[in-house]
Amino acid sequence: MSVPALEVLAISKDFGRIIALRGVSFSVQSGEFVSILGRNGAGKTTLLNIISGISRPSEGEVKLFGTDPSDRENKAKLAVISHEMFLYGNLTAIENLEYYSRIYNIPNAKQRVETVLNDVELTHRRFDLVATYSRGMTQRLTIARALLHEPSLLLLDEPFTGLDQHAIGMLITLLKKQKEMGRTILLTTHDLHTATELSDRYVVISKHKIVKDGLIADTNPDAIREKFFSADTGGIDL
């Protein structure tokens, strides 16, 4: 068997008075789509920060494609989509994308920028300042920016938060396309519906630990809902 795309080996993030993760282990095979379910504050964002090499675990180890996540080659293979835009309002769409394509050293940048702009249906607004965009349009551009360097691993941190219906539909379509192309995708969400629709596997994090790791196919979504989601809070309740 080939090297898994991601291996998380017994990591803890426990610094000073802050406890974020405790002994979390799981691995993701290349091409898999895994959803990480958990309440706000359960440690999902910290986990993604550690996987993306921004943060260091206080114990344990993470391996991205067999090496350290903070390696430059790994960072080039990775994209993060979160509620943060990662865009400059005072630049146009095309200037933003050109800036990032230089940073990521993308060959054939011009063509690539056109392709991603077309994918998110923003070609007609490409010369406008991002500050003049509507929220939905900005989010679409955020997605375009993330896909610019054709990442092999996509980390999505609550990407549906604050999106309008149109942008959600577009993101889901794009994610399905990415999955068909064999990209590995890791999604954190508290939205069970999209998680079951998109992913192959799910991992439930609660109180800084993994409490469930299973295949979506093996599980009845209602059973997950019954077990981990309480109807009244709409979130995970353990």
């Binding site: 921004i54 080039a76 993060v80 943060e84 835009m85 309002g89 005072n90």
Partner: peptide, 18 residues
């Protein structure tokens, strides 16, 4: 302030550069 505005500081940390 420009870098902080839209989370670009985090984007910088994610860049595959020194």
């Amino acid at each position: 302030a420009l870098e902080k505005e839209n989370g670009n500081l985090r984007a910088m940390a994610l860049m595959p550069v020194d």
